[in-house]
């Protein structure tokens, strides 16, 4: 059976409604399941279809399935689709061992657009994550997705990056098989391409 670096392995995907957070968490969980692991996903999303905070807890284990919520300070890996969402999830669930892969493109909250509050300086966000987590990689996943032909496939680009980071035991092929199972036609093509580009886009992780 596939062995995890840590069991249970706790992954969080943090973003905003509409970014495809839930699909990303399912891709990881299905790939894990295909390799004989148990997966539990706990999703936290509010009342809005688009634009609210969304957080998916993905918990992988070789043993009995665990609950859908990760305890505070026990996340091992954080996939960030949005910087301030990522920062806040890191603060609540991260430990000094946390690894972060972040798409540093902001989705501005309404309070910022209205001029009531300022979006924090990006460098400060990155510095904080860099300084307190074990590792931070950033990836311009939205731009990569645009080049892959679908700007909204950013989530799959990020899953590609996660798959290449060497933190999870699943084979690249397992993820691709899930994509092939879940999509048809153009969507399949685009998601495969998004995954592949994301997979190649995180150079530091291949070292």
């Amino acid at each position: 059976m596939t062995a995890l670096r840590k069991d249970p392995f706790n992954l969080i995907i943090a973003g905003v409604g509409g970014q495809g957070n839930i699909l990303a968490s399912q891709l990881v969980a299905q790939a894990a399941l295909a390799e004989g692991l148990n997966a539990t996903i706990g999703e936290t999303y509010g009342v809005s279809q688009r634009g609210g905070s969304v957080m998916s807890h993905v918990r992988l284990t070789a043993g009995t399935p665990v609950g859908p919520l990760i305890p505070q300070g026990e996340a091992d890996l954080l996939i960030g689709f949005e910087p301030i969402e990522t920062l806040q999830v890191a603060m609540d669930f991260g430990s000094p061992q946390l690894r972060v892969i972040l798409n540093p493109r902001p989705v501005y909250p309404i309070s910022v657009l209205s001029g009531d509050l300022a979006y924090p300086p990006m460098e400060r966000i990155l510095d904080l994550l860099r300084g307190h987590a074990a590792d931070l990689s950033t990836l311009p996943a939205t731009d990569i997705a645009r080049e892959a032909g679908e700007i909204r496939a950013m989530n799959v680009v990020m899953v590609g990056a996660l798959a290449s980071a060497g933190l999870l035991p699943m084979d690249k092929e397992s993820y691709l098989r899930v994509i092939r199972d879940q999509f048809r036609g153009r969507a399949r093509e685009i998601n495969q391409r998004a995954f592949e580009t994301g997979y190649e886009a995180l150079p530091s992780a291949h070292a």
Binding site: V16, I84, E85, P109, S111, A118
Partner: peptide, 14 residues
């Protein structure tokens, strides 16, 4: 170290 306010993400119409 956080010397800024993290804007809350209020629920909003899509």
């Amino acid at each position: 170290e956080i010397d800024f306010e993290i804007p809350k993400r209020e629920v909003a119409f899509c």
